[in-house]
Design a protein around this nucleic acid. Structure first.
Lengths: 239, 239
DNA sequence: GTCGGACAGATCGTATACAATTCCGCGCGA
DNA sequence: TCGCGCGGAATTGTATACGATCTGTCCGAC
């Protein structure tokens, strides 16, 4: 009897909605800086919040742990991750590696429709900045990088980058300095202009500069976890 | 009341053993080509095999799905993934991007102990090849790339690469030609010699060549899933 | 003879229940 | 006053139970 050779992983692929929905919403909450690093994510609390039971919450937390957005402590629960300085630097290094290649590829031959898409995205970024919508701003600034990767035509790389971008959001929140707030939207806009000119070389340079700019704007000096967070938490009090 | 700032994600980090153990063992089974693509992974069967209950198996399957080693069909079950040709090409492209950078970094200034480690690894590869131990061979050939990434000092990149290497194992099995069997161990050995000479440029060239060599040895011609598998399954009969 | 619908079996999805571990506050003693 | 040990409450870890969905087969109709 020959093996069934799997039921053709065809059209229907979307999971119900619930588990991935929880992952999506918690991810959004973390990357949009609504859930600060170190926040405890109790299973019962989350279940109550989403109207589902612990079983489902647990699965979502496991997935989030694999994305490195939450840390699971064996019998103590789930917490929003607190990337170390070392990890932060490594994430930026990884992004430089991937995005250099992505930008070079995309700038080589962007289709008109693709250029329109990135232009529209930058417009949305500017809108969020103008409206002072911090949540949308965080989300859009990150999604820009994922969008470019998708348009570059490699979904695998785009997925890897999505993960790294999420982690970057966490890092940004943890280590941002008071004066930080890089105006990334304009840097994105300049990048888009390079795309329009098919200027791959300059696009790559700009992207690397952009990432280094973001990294340098952070306080990545301490060597261990984040005593920073404790202090700021003590100073700023209530979340 | 200031937030507890998380219970110091300190020393103890290892998860119990069970869930990750299942993930590890199934991953090994897949990457060592003991579980062919398309194999159904029933929850009850796996639970029985590992002596745990479905709850735990499900968590493991979810993690494996995120690693893209298994495909979850909504109400039908889990199957060993069958990467498409497109996905296969994208995985190789992603690996070229990452490994080019990894090799360049590592070849720049490898420590003596690190060189010893990679030499030892290649020796183990040769041993497995000589002993005709196909399982160990598959594992070691993949782990070489992860090892180099780890030694290059970026754990984040190493983790990304580990995932890609696992997926490559699956791809290799799915699309290998009868005459395939690239003798990667010798290519690894030559790479190590470049490391010893700190010849970064040639090391990068060799690595890219090596990856392209592996990719070209596969039958990545068809555009859709793998009718190949069906035929071979019908021909070869029993697993 | 082939196609369409319905039933039965099996498997997955979700919730609930119980056991194990941890955390927190209290009391005791030095 | 501080350290240490000890319950009680809360939370996590695991298993089981029940409902929903799908697969495969059988039967009847065209």
């Amino acid at each position: 009897m020959p093996r069934p050779s799997a039921p053709a992983a065809g059209p229907r692929r979307a999971r119900r909605t619930t588990t991935d929905e929880i992952v999506r919403r918690v991810t959004a909450a973390i990357t949009e800086h609504r859930l600060p690093p170190g926040t405890k994510l109790g299973e019962e609390s989350l279940g109550e919040a989403f109207g589902v039971s612990r079983t489902k919450v647990r699965e979502a937390l496991f997935q989030l742990a694999q994305l490195r957005l939450v840390t699971l402590l064996p019998a103590r629960g789930a917490f929003v991750a607190q990337p170390t300085v070392r990890e932060a630097r490594e994430v930026f290094a990884a992004r430089r590696i991937l995005e250099r290649a992505v930008v070079a590829e995309f700038a080589r031959a962007p289709a008109a429709a693709q250029l329109a898409a990135v232009r529209a995205h930058v417009a949305a970024e500017r809108e969020a900045v103008a409206a002072n919508d911090l949540w949308a701003r965080s989300r859009l600034l990150g999604e820009f990088h994922v969008l470019v990767a998708q348009l570059a035509g490699n979904a695998v790389v785009a997925d890897l980058l999505r993960e790294l971008v999420s982690r970057t959001s966490l890092i940004t929140l943890l280590y941002q300095t008071a004066s930080a707030s890089v105006c990334s939207a304009e840097e994105h806009a300049e990048l888009v202009r390079c795309f329009e000119r098919r200027d791959a070389k300059r696009a790559v340079a700009l992207m690397l500069e952009h990432l280094e700019h973001v990294e340098r704007s952070l306080a990545l000096r301490a060597d261990e976890p984040a005593a920073v967070d404790l202090r700021s938490a003590l100073a700023a009090a209530k979340a």
